[in-house]
Amino acid sequence: MEETHVGISVEVNGRPHRSTVEPRTLLVDYLRDDLGLTGTHIGCDTGQCGACTVIVDGQSVKSCMVLAVQADGAHVRTVEGLAQDGRYHAVQQGFWEKHGLQCGFCTPGFMMQSVQILEDNPDPSDQEIRDALEGNLCRCTGYQNIVEAVKAAGATIRSGAETMALGTGVGA
């Protein structure tokens, strides 16, 4: 008789979690339902939309196409872990400043993939950004401001400039 539940240890945004899950539990459902990290969203069921993109052991993945048991022992980064030390991540700031989001539903996935893009290459061209966002769908923005957001984030990272503090207003 096979076990119906499996124990896993996963570190999410630097915090360790020990859990028991059914093998069929998807990583995204584990994050949302078991850990209450609802910033990672589900936009499709066939792996096209990328709304559920998180970073597992340094690589962006669609968490709807990874089983929670496969993340046993892994380090997972989600949107909730982007801001550090009271400051926005450069990618968050880029999306905010360049109006890279409208409804905001696809945004966590786009930002996590953008983090990946800029970790691979902090100075990508427009076309490189568009190609590397092939796995993320947005229905609101037409992508133009998302490309601008990633470029702005890259510039911030390259310059080493301090990002905005959490709690900053719109300044008007």
Binding site: G39, I42, E80, H99, L101, T107, P108, V170, G171, A172
Partner: peptide, 19 residues
């Protein structure tokens, strides 16, 4: 001016119905 709704949405603190 940049949007007032964005801080919650870019930090994963939006509250969509499924949340």
């Amino acid at each position: 001016i940049r949007r007032r709704e964005d801080p919650r949405l870019i930090t994963g603190r939006g509250k969509f119905t499924d949340d």
